[in-house]
Amino acid sequence: MWLIDSSIGRKVVMSVTGMALILFLTFHMAMNCVALFSEDGYRAICEFLGANWYALVGTVGLAALMVIHFIYAFWLSWQNYKARGSSRYAVTERPKTVEWSSQNMLVIGIIVCIGLFIHLINFWSKMQLVEIMGDKPADGVDLIRNTFSKWYFALVYLVWLFFIWLHLTHGFWSAIQTVGWSSKVWHKRWKVIGNVCITLLILGFASVLVLYFGKSLMA
């Protein structure tokens, strides 16, 4: 199976799962932003998703994507570490065109996963998980308000978003390069498109956080 036993195949798996996760984040951000304009609208979305069958199928699919992306990340990193040989360079210097994030995707990814763990405890375990267990889920808007009224959570989430930004600004064009949809000209275009899209995505998430933290300061 070429997705397992060839280097390009393994990278394609990373690329496709990564792109799917970016797509998920886009929907997630769009739904979060409803809370900027209408709290009732946000509650309606929470209810619409809840623990309905389609939301559960989505969650399982998402978890599978995450797990595959994670396993391949460690597998590829281990192979790459071995390919470097047993002795390391004494002096290394990063060329100007090489992004720091591109050489540290695994570390950034692990930090993103820690953030995800906190996020799942804060929200998912009190919403969908409770509903799966058969209880009444917590109110989504209340959860946002309570979580982001605490300065330390606001800070942790901002740092988390920054690391997601680092991970995705490299991941976006890298995913496209891996499946081969790039050329000399399109490489530059994809980079600009990626940077704009990912920055808007992260700003979307951050705006909800900042608004509710601001509201808590006013109250």
Binding site: N80, V98, E99, S174
Partner: peptide
């Protein structure tokens, strides 16, 4: 190893071969 698109190769290549070839 497996390529992770860091572009270090392209930056150090004495003949400036582009990573568009990798694509």
């Amino acid at each position: 190893g497996n390529c992770t698109n860091t572009r270090a190769c392209e930056a150090e290549c004495p003949k400036c071969v582009s990573i568009s070839n990798i694509a």
